[in-house]
């Protein structure tokens, strides 16, 4: 009965837009939902460094190289902000990382697609970061304090990511016919996976109910997807590229674009680990982690030595 009363007080706080903080009482499902969502979000930032790292040593100019490097460094930082926030839910960093390493935890499926050409760096920044930003802007108002604070910081930093991608696409689209074709090809391959980043339709999304009631999510998958598409169509038009959807059409009544159906079989195949790069991404992560073992050991040994010195002195 105590729980029913607590639950009522909890919901009243949520309804009054009062943030939930780590030491506050929260329903177990709320905690679990956040642990899952925030750690998936963190894992996505970390794994998301790989497709971009693929082009770091082949960036076409020094400028594009320093920019890409800064962007990848940001992704690492964003992963760390999110792990920090997720740890306040009473689960350790090591436990979260363990779930990633063993493949128990998911990350955004988009990173299981390969980045085949330099234009893909454009498409990733413009579309993948663009979609992530739409989601993250909405999450700045999420009900869990540490998550909301992390999102504010991430959104501030990410605003350059999408622009750098769009700049690459715009440059290539006005380059030689081959370069323009490369840009169009990148758009063709990344468009559908990008709009599927928002997840299944609301009608097929079992987690949406409580997540909206508890204001973990401030907008539904379909709302966010629509907002992203409405923003992006014009951006494609002004650089002369074509979004690969024959059903894409402005709907005067809705004040939004209508668009074609996504390939959900492909979506679920990739979510379940059958993406073109799923195995490679996880193996690379594990190798990097294992190769860093001597660093962790040395750092620990150094800290222990310093501590014992301090005790003697």
């Amino acid at each position: 009965m105590e729980d029913a009363k607590k639950l009522e007080e909890f919901q009243a706080k949520i309804d009054a837009e009062i943030k939930i903080e780590p030491k506050d009482w929260m329903p177990e499902d709320y905690r679990k939902h956040l642990q899952r969502q925030m750690s998936q979000h963190a894992h996505s930032e970390i794994i998301g460094m790989q497709p971009e790292g693929n082009w770091l040593l082949r960036a076409p100019s020094l400028r594009s190289k320093v920019v890409l490097l800064a962007k990848i460094q940001d992704e690492a930082g964003h992963g760390l902000y999110l792990y920090s926030a997720a740890e306040t839910l009473g689960k350790s960093r090591t436990e979260y990382l363990d779930e990633l390493k063993t493949g128990k935890a998911k990350y955004s499926s988009i990173f299981n697609y390969p980045t085949l050409t330099w234009a893909d760096m454009g498409a990733v920044g413009w579309l993948v970061d663009g979609a992530a930003i739409v989601n993250q802007v909405s999450l700045q108002r999420t009900s869990y304090g540490p998550y909301a604070r992390g999102m504010v910081k991430i959104c501030k930093e990410e605003s350059f990511h999408q622009r750098q991608g769009y700049e690459i696409m715009a440059d290539m689209a006005k380059g030689s016919p081959e370069q323009k074709e490369m840009a169009q090809d990148a758009l063709n391959r990344f468009w559908w996976p990008s709009i599927m980043m928002f997840g299944p339709h609301d009608s097929d999304s079992p987690n949406t109910g409580n997540a909206v009631k508890w204001k973990i999510k401030r907008a539904t998958n379909d709302q966010l997807r629509q907002s992203f598409i409405d923003k992006t169509v014009h951006q494609a038009e002004i650089i002369g590229l074509t979004i690969p959807d024959p059903d894409l059409k402005w709907n005067e009544n809705r004040g939004s674009y209508d668009f074609g159906e996504m390939d959900w079989d492909e979506f679920w195949t990739v979510v379940k680990g059958g993406g073109p790069c799923s195995k490679q991404r996880l193996k690379h992560y594990n190798d990097a982690h294992n190769n860093g073992e001597w660093v962790r050991k040395a750092a620990k040994a150094y800290a222990e030595k310093q501590n014992s010195k301090q005790k003697v002195a």
Binding site: A70, G77, E157, A303
Partner: peptide, 24 residues
């Protein structure tokens, strides 16, 4: 307060804080 991080000793904590929280 801006957040937190993991580090094995105080120098590493300070350097990581610099990398993680003052990139701009």
């Amino acid at each position: 307060h801006v957040g937190n991080l993991h580090a094995s000793d105080k120098e590493m904590a300070l350097q990581n804080a610099r990398d993680l929280y003052t990139r701009r």
